Computed example of a mutant assay.
Amino acid sequence: MDSLGSLNAFVQAADTRSFTAAGQKLGVSSSAISKAVARLEERLAVRLFHRSTRTVTLTPEGALFLERCRRIFCEIEAAELELSQTRGAPRGKLRVSLPLVGMLMMPTLAAFMRAWPDIELDLDFSDRLVDVIEEGFDAVVRTGEIRDSRLMMRTLGTFPYKLVGSPAYFGEHGTPQTPADLSAHRGLRHLYPSTGKIEDWPLHGKGNPATADIPTAAVASAIEPLIYLAEQGLGLTCLPDFAIRDQLGKGSLVSVLDDAVRHSVTFRILWPSSRHLSPKLRAFVDFMGENFIPASPG
C-alpha cells in the first residue's frame, strides 16, 4: 500500500507539474510528495522528474512510467467499480474536454446533469489538441479526423454548414445568387485560436470548388459573437446548421446559396481504450450519442 501511495503521489505530481498542487489534491504537504517521489526514484534507480524552482517536468523515463501507472490505477478503479456497479447509479467526477463551440452543446449537457444528478461534470472548453490520456480526461468531444490508436471513438453527428444573414442585411445589401456575388458583401469569419488562421468558406459554383472571396467585416475565435453580429445585420457568416437552428427557426437568420455550400463538420466523442468503461463514462457516451443533435425548434 505504501508503494501505491508513492505511485499516486507521482501521478498527481505528473498531472499538475507541481509538488505543491499534488499535495493540495492529496491533502498532504508538498514535502511529503517530494519525499514520496524521491523514495520511488531511489527504489527504481531512475530519475522521474526534472526539477526546477517553479515546476517539475517528466523525464523520458518518467513519461514511460506514467503511462504504466495510469494503467495500474485504471485496473484498480475497474476492480472497485465491478464490485460496486450493482449497488447504485453512476456517480463521481467526469472530466470532459470540449471544443469552444461546445458552448452550444450546453442544453444537451444540462439535460445530462438532470438525468444523472450524481455525476459531477468537470468541463474544459478549448480548441487546442489535448492529450486525452496524459492530461487525465475521461472523454473529449472533437471534430475532424482522429488518428490515435489509444482512443475509442463514437460519432455523434455530422452537420452541414449554412451561409446566413439577417433579413435586414439582405434588404440593405441584396441577396447573393452565386458565390461570385459575395465579393460585394461583408464576411463575419471564424478564426481558429489554435492556429490563428481564418476558416475558409468552401463553396461550389457551377459544380466546381470555389473559396468565397468576401471582404472581412469581423473575425472571432468563438461562434456566439458571429451569430450575434449576423443577427444584427452586420454581415454574413457560415456556420454548422445545429449552431444556428434556433435563429433559422424564428427567422432572425436566413440561409442563402444552399446549393453552393458543401462543407460539413463531424463531431466525435473519444475516450482512452485502456480505460475501463465506468458506469459514469458509459452513461455520458450513451447520452451524448442519443441526444447530441438538438431538437428542432417549433
Rank of each mutant, 00 (worst) to 15 (best):
T108L: 06
L182K: 03
E199W: 07
S166Y: 01
R245M: 02
K206I: 10
E199G: 03
F65S: 14
E290H: 07
V261F: 03
E80A: 14
F112Y: 06
D131S: 08
V256Y: 02
A32C: 04
R71S: 13
V11A: 14
G136W: 03
A13L: 02
V96I: 11
D200F: 14
D118A: 11
L229F: 15
F292M: 07
D286E: 10
S183I: 13
T175P: 01
A45N: 15
R47D: 05
L188A: 06
I198A: 10
A222N: 12
G62T: 00
Q232K: 15
V11Y: 11
R70D: 04
L40P: 08
L270V: 15
T211K: 13
H190N: 09
H263I: 02
G92A: 05
R282T: 05
G289T: 09
T59W: 14
G62W: 00
R39F: 10
E67W: 03
H185D: 01
P294L: 11
Y192W: 11
S194G: 07
G251F: 03
M103W: 10
F19M: 09
P117Y: 02
V101S: 15
G196I: 12
G102L: 06
K25H: 13
Y169M: 01
E61P: 12
G171Q: 02
R282C: 08
R186G: 06
L226E: 00
P179H: 05
R268Q: 15
E172G: 03
K93G: 05
T57N: 06
A222M: 08
E134G: 07
A168F: 11
L239R: 01
A36W: 00
S3Y: 14
I227K: 00
S274D: 12
R245F: 02
K25S: 04
K250G: 02
P202G: 00
G251W: 02
W116A: 07
V132R: 03
